Amino acid sequence: MLMSQSEIAARIPHQGSMCLLQEVRELDEQHIVCTTRTHLDAANPMRENGRMGAALGIEYAAQAMALHCALQQQQGERPRGGYLTSVRDVQLHAETLDASSEPLTVRAERIAASEQTAMYQFSLHAGESLLVQGRIAAMLDVAAPLQT
Results as ranks from 00 to 15, higher is better:
Met1Gly: 15
Met1Ile: 10
Met1Lys: 11
Leu2Lys: 15
Leu2His: 07
Met3Ile: 05
Ser4Asp: 12
Ser4Arg: 08
Ser4Ala: 09
Glu7Val: 00
Arg11Ala: 01
Ile12Ser: 02
Ile12Glu: 02
Pro13Ala: 11
Pro13Leu: 11
Gly16Asn: 11
Ser17Asn: 06
Met18Asp: 00
Cys19Pro: 04
Cys19Trp: 03
Cys19Tyr: 05
Leu21Ile: 01
Leu21Trp: 06
Gln22Asp: 06
Val24Leu: 11
Glu26Val: 10
Leu27Thr: 02
Asp28Thr: 12
Glu29Gly: 14
Gln30Gly: 06
His31Arg: 15
His31Phe: 08
Val33Cys: 14
Cys34Val: 11
Cys34Met: 08
Thr35Pro: 05
Thr35Leu: 02
Thr36Lys: 09
Leu40Pro: 14
Asp41Tyr: 09
Ala43Trp: 00
Ala43Glu: 08
Ala43Cys: 02
Asn44Trp: 05
Asn44Glu: 03
Pro45Ala: 06
Glu48Lys: 13
Glu48Leu: 13
Asn49Ile: 02
Arg51Cys: 13
Gly53Phe: 01
Ala54His: 08
Ala55Arg: 06
Leu56Val: 09
Leu56Asp: 05
Gly57Val: 03
Tyr60Ser: 14
Tyr60Asp: 07
Tyr60Asn: 11
Tyr60His: 13
Ala61Phe: 10
Gln63Cys: 12
Ala64Tyr: 14
Ala64Ile: 07
Met65Thr: 06
Cys69Arg: 14
Ala70Phe: 08
Ala70Pro: 08
Leu71Asn: 05
Gln73Ser: 12
Gln75Ile: 03
Glu77Asn: 04
Glu77Val: 00
Arg78Ser: 03
Arg78Cys: 01
Pro79Leu: 01
Pro79Trp: 02
Arg80Met: 09
Arg80Phe: 07
Gly81Met: 09
Gly81His: 10
Gly82Pro: 10
Tyr83Asn: 03
Ser86Gly: 13
Ser86Trp: 00
Arg88Glu: 12
Asp89Met: 02
Asp89Tyr: 04
Asp89Ala: 11
Leu92Gln: 14
His93Asp: 11
His93Met: 15
His93Ser: 12
Glu95Lys: 14
Thr96Tyr: 08
Asp98Arg: 13
Asp98Ser: 11
Ala99Asn: 10
Ser100Trp: 06
Ser100Pro: 10
Ser101Ala: 12
Pro103Leu: 04
Leu104Trp: 10
Val106Glu: 03
Val106Arg: 07
Arg107Tyr: 05
Arg107Gly: 01
Arg107Phe: 07
Ala108Pro: 15
Arg110Gln: 15
Arg110Glu: 06
Ile111Lys: 08
Ala112Pro: 00
Ala113Thr: 05
Ala113Val: 02
Glu115Tyr: 04
Gln116His: 09
Gln116Glu: 09
Thr117Glu: 03
Ala118Met: 07
Met119Asp: 02
Met119Gly: 06
Tyr120Val: 00
Tyr120Asn: 03
Gln121His: 07
Phe122Lys: 04
Phe122Ile: 02
Phe122His: 08
Ser123Tyr: 07
Ser123Gly: 08
Leu124Pro: 12
Leu124Phe: 04
Ala126Trp: 10
Ala126His: 13
Ala126Ser: 15
Glu128Lys: 15
Ser129Phe: 00
Leu131Asp: 03
Gln133Gly: 04
Gly134His: 06
Arg135Ser: 10
Ile136Asp: 03
Ile136Pro: 03
Ile136Cys: 05
Ala138Gly: 08
Ala138Pro: 06
Ala138Asp: 02
Met139Tyr: 13
Leu140Gly: 00
Asp141Ser: 10
Asp141Tyr: 01
Asp141Gly: 04
Ala143Lys: 10
Ala143Pro: 04
Ala144Glu: 12
Pro145Tyr: 01
Gln147Val: 07
Gln147Trp: 01
